[in-house]
Each structure stands twice: as structure tokens, then as C-alpha cells.
Amino acid sequence: MSKPIYVTQPVLPELKDFIPYLEQIWENKILTNGGPLHQQLEQELCKYLCVDYISLFNNGTIALITALQALNLEEGEVITTPYTFVATAHSIVWNKFTPVFVDIDPITSNIDVQQVGQAITEKTVAILPVHCYGIPCDVEGLQVLATKHKLKLIYDAAHAFGVEYNGQSLLNYGDLSTISFHATKVFNTFEGGAVVCHSLEMKQRIDQLKNFGIVDETSVNDISLNGKLSEIHAALGLLQLKTMNQTLQNRGKVDDYYRELLANIEGIRCIERLKVEKDNYAYFPIVVSEPYPLSRNELFEKFKQHDVFARKYFYPLMNELSVYKSYKSDTPNAKLLSEQVLCLPMYPDLTDNDIQKIVQIIKSETAL
């Protein structure tokens, strides 16, 4: 039997290189609460990502929930995209805001700025776009809207680790950006995440919120969650950073080879990545449409017959889930893309032979 090819595979260092970090943790006997490795990782990430302030979290979802809480927004609506993972919408509702889903640009898969502008009302308090697949949103257009209407702009940048756009980190746009360090992401700490902000005052507020709102031994100023990242997770992050540039280079090679082999197959479109100074090649989504002989779902099932496990990402849309159907939305572009998109396997160790096998499965239908 052939070895299965999964949609992603976590990048892990050599186990022998991880042992010294564990020995340091055992010697320090500090496991959490902002220990030395946690502090070191924050410093190293600020340098690597070219950001001023970063607060580490135990996962990207708690980071996003806390980011919204940190802005002290009044009750109201938050405009977002339905073409995303559930954490984006959940973070809005968890903070007792009302999500307003607007449509996407079908080419970039990101939120449509014109649709955002049309959705703004007196109830709107913030905009929460997603840099889908690590592709930058129209950050300039969104900032114009946020400034004009005095709205907060928070980016769900779960996919955008390391992306640089217009001469700076993509994470520097907006009031806050959140990242995910989940095992499937470009940079992982097993589980983890972070909030990027632009002032020491905001970082201190975020750090308090991720620790139950505790200020000191006798004071608690907010009702908030426990979002602290452990020393073991921080240790893995420090080790991962050492090979990050090579990881991104290898991902870029996989992306290039896919595009070369998939060129000129009718009905198969690779979602284009914007020209950026530094890309992370977080995913490899294709769009399956006529005249390709199979539907997206049929191709998905055919892959499984050959032990290739792609992913319908994002499907279903947030506004088609039962828990979100009652919220306002009209998103035909997002609906069509969710029914046609398929993320092919993408990770830095994916071999040329694996890529050839995947593309041959696609091409085999066109030869019938």
C-alpha cells in the first residue's frame, strides 16, 4: 500500500536538539507564568517578525478573543468574513458582539473592502478581516474605512506568520493582529498563538488579560481567560525559529512546482498569491470548476481513493453553520468558492514524487 499523503505535516526539529531545552526547564523548575524561555521567545519573535510588541498565548483562539476584549469596545457589530475558520466568528460572539458577514473577493479569497464599506452602520464598532491563506488583505482600503468611521481594525493573521508586505511585516497593520502557532501552521509550538500590538501600554493590558485579569497579588481588574503559553511550548518555538528561513524556502519550492505542473489544466485554477517581499506559502488552494470533468467533492473523494487527503478549506461557510444562520449575511462569492476550493497537501518536506502523484490524479480525469 502507498504511504498516505496528508494535507499538512508538522515541522519538527531533531529530538536531540530539543533535549537541552527540556533540561533547562527541569533545572529552572519554571513551567509557565512567563518564564525565561517565554520571555526569550517573545524577544526573538519581535526581531524575526519585525514587530514592536508581541504577547504569546496558549493558542490562536484565546489570542483572538483577548485581542477583541483588550480594545474596550462598546456593544455592537463586528464586520467579518464568512470564509474563515470558526475561531474568527466564535471570538466575536464570545465577546458579546454581533458578527456581520460580508462577501469576499473571489480572486484573493479575502474580505471585499467595498462590501465592508456598505455594511458599516451606527452599530459597527470594529472590522475583523482574515489574511486568508496568508494572502494580504487590502490593508490600505480597510484602514481608510476604519479611520473614516473611527472603527477598530483587528486582523486574524492566523495564516500570515512571516509575511512582509509593502516593506514591513503584515502584522503591523491595523490596531492588533493575532497569529496561530498550531501544529498545522507554518510556525508551530505544538499549540500556541500571539497578539501583535503597537505600544507597551497595550501589551501590558493584553498580558494582564491572558492571566485572568490579574494585576498583582491583591488586584484583579478584568474578568478574562487563562491564555498563558508554557515553557515547553516556548522552547519548541525557539528551536523552530532557527530553521524558519529554510522552512519558508522549501515551502516556496513546493508552491512553484505545483504551479508548474498544474498550468493549463482546464477547470483547475491555482489561487494566486500577491507579490510580497516575503511570503510563507501557508496553503496551496485550487479552485475546481467547469470544464474540469469532476466536481470539487468528486475530486476530493478520488484523492482519498489514492491515499491523498486534501481539505475543503473553508467549507462550510460560517454563515451556513446552524449557530450562525441567524446573523445578517449575503455572500454569494464566498459560497461559490467554498463549494469549489480544495487545499492540496502543502508542507516543506513534500517530495517531488508526491507532488507528481497528486497532479497526475488531477490530470488523469482530463485524459478520459
Rank of each mutant, 00 (worst) to 15 (best):
V186S: 03
F97P: 02
A235I: 05
A119C: 02
Y283G: 01
C343G: 04
S295R: 02
G227H: 06
E231Q: 03
N211T: 11
A157Q: 10
D105F: 13
L200R: 08
E44F: 06
K335G: 05
P293K: 10
A263Q: 15
L294R: 13
E75I: 03
L37W: 01
N353E: 15
R296T: 07
G192H: 11
I62D: 09
S295Q: 04
G141P: 00
G213L: 10
H131V: 12
L41N: 01
N166L: 00
P136G: 15
Q340M: 13
K3L: 12
V308S: 09
V130Q: 02
I232R: 06
M318Q: 09
Q115M: 08
G35R: 00
R296N: 14
F284G: 01
D138M: 14
L209F: 05
M318D: 00
N280Y: 01
E339G: 08
I107P: 06
V215C: 07
N172V: 04
I54R: 10
T243S: 13
S322P: 11
E298Y: 05
D352T: 09
V51G: 10
D156F: 07
V341M: 14
F314G: 00
E290G: 10
M244T: 06
L15C: 01
S326I: 01
P13A: 05
Y281V: 08
V254A: 08
T61M: 08
R296H: 08
I120A: 10
H182E: 14
V195D: 06
D216C: 04
N28Q: 09
A146N: 09
D138A: 12
V276M: 11
Q360D: 11
M346T: 08
Q246Y: 12
L12Q: 04
Q340H: 13
I361Q: 09
H233Y: 05
Y347K: 08
V287C: 07
H90L: 02
L262R: 02
I54V: 14
T189M: 05
N211W: 04
V139A: 15
L321M: 15
E140C: 13
E140D: 15
L171N: 06
G267T: 09
V78T: 02
S55D: 03
T331S: 00
I362H: 06
P20N: 03
H233R: 10
P13Q: 05
E77Q: 09
Q69I: 07
V163M: 10
A194R: 01
P13L: 03
L225K: 11
A87N: 11
M202I: 12
G213H: 08
Q39K: 13
V323L: 11
E164R: 15
A183S: 12
F161K: 00
V93S: 06
K328S: 05
